[in-house]
């Protein structure tokens, strides 16, 4: 468990600051690449929500699994995926995390336990409980974390999965990142009842509210409940309140937003808050600046490498469909 009075505590938070900054740099530079027409698709940015994935994954091991949603860049970086391979994937280049087969919405790195971002909401939940069941069956000492958004709490599989996790007492953490918008709809306007925590509690699941823009608070609660899950405490639910600074997707002009809302929420964004705390707790401004510079340099270099990387051979479209039936894929001659 996190001991926030320990002498190395500021160093722990500085590590999280580095991860959050790397995610922010990735998202900003990916947007530049998108605007420059380099991304053969769209991107869903995690700007403003970095503290949640960062602090949760800081409490996970490489052998633990995470499942993400469509907004998966931050989760992947926090779990240890290589940003350069991710940038190559966005550009559809050789060396991409999925060899250019998936793109932004299907970022995955199984080598670090990141079992995939996903284009269908709530499917991470049903697959997550199954992955947890597999860990139990294989007697592996690891846990599963599933990241979902507030909008997904209105899909049926959300309820099936929470019920399922409880009846089989699975080692799983559900993290609901409440960024207030379900695509372009205000989630409050389409959601009955008091909210995600009450919904989780209806299944008898321990559920916690946290300020998702405070990396230290997320870390403290995540540390406690992840330890609890590892010790056989069963499924737990973390509801992290945050705000989606960017649109749902890179093409979103955000015409549905009240004037001034984004600016007001920007004042509460997690990276500046974390920097303020670090400076008050013995980390020099110079170190913060150098952390920022090195994160942006790493991602700029990643983009340069991605631009320089070759495109895959088009014929690779026929690879990795399935083992059986490969004679009959109907290739164009």
């Amino acid at each position: 468990m996190t001991n926030n009075t320990a002498s190395n505590y500021p160093a722990r938070i500085l590590e999280m600051y580095k991860t959050m900054t790397l995610i922010r740099a990735f998202e900003e530079i990916a947007e530049e690449a998108f605007d420059a027409g380099l991304v053969n698709g769209s991107i869903h940015q995690y700007i403003g929500e970095e503290a949640i994935g960062t602090a949760v994954c800081a409490n996970l091991r490489k052998t633990d699994f995470i499942l993400s949603n469509h907004r998966g860049h931050g989760h992947a970086i926090a779990k240890g995926a290589n940003p350069e391979a991710m940038m190559k994937e966005l550009l559809g280049k050789v060396g991409g995390t999925s060899g250019g087969k998936g793109g932004s919405m299907h970022i995955a790195d199984f080598s670090v336990g990141m079992l995939g971002a996903n284009g269908v909401l709530a499917d991470g939940l049903t697959m997550g409980v199954g992955a947890a069941q597999a860990l139990v069956l294989r007697n592996v000492d690891a846990i599963v974390t599933v990241f979902v958004g507030d909008g997904t709490t209105n899909r049926g599989p959300f309820y099936e999965s929470l019920n399922w996790a409880m009846i089989y007492e699975l080692p799983i953490l559900f993290v609901c990142e409440n960024n207030t918008y379900a695509s372009s709809t205000s989630t409050r306007k389409v959601t009955a009842g008091p909210g995600p925590v009450a919904r989780a509690e209806a299944f008898g699941m321990p559920a916690y509210d946290v300020d998702g823009n405070d990396v230290r608070e997320v870390d403290e609660i995540a540390s406690k409940i992840i330890t609890n899950i590892r010790n056989g405490g069963g499924p737990q639910f973390l509801h992290a309140k945050t705000y989606r600074i960017k649109g749902h997707v890179s093409r979103d002009k955000m015409l549905y937003r009240p004037e001034g809302e984004t600016e007001a929420n920007w004042k509460n964004e997690p990276i500046s808050r974390c920097a303020d705390w670090l400076i008050k707790n013995g980390i020099s401004e110079a170190e913060i600046n150098s952390t920022n510079a090195s994160a942006y340099k790493e991602i700029r270099d990643a983009l340069e490498a991605a631009i320089a990387a070759p495109f895959p051979d088009g014929k690779l479209a026929y690879k990795d469909v399935q083992d059986l039936g490969n004679r009959y894929l109907g290739e164009h001659s």
């Binding site: 699994f65 049903t126 409980v129 199954g130 597999a134 139990v136 069956l137 089989y168």
Partner: peptide
Amino acid sequence: KRIVNTPISENTIMGAAVGAAVAGTRP
């Protein structure tokens, strides 16, 4: 643990099988 009697939750029966297959078992 190996003959798992489930609730009437088809999305999760199928989804859990996918997750469990990806995570190293053969459901």
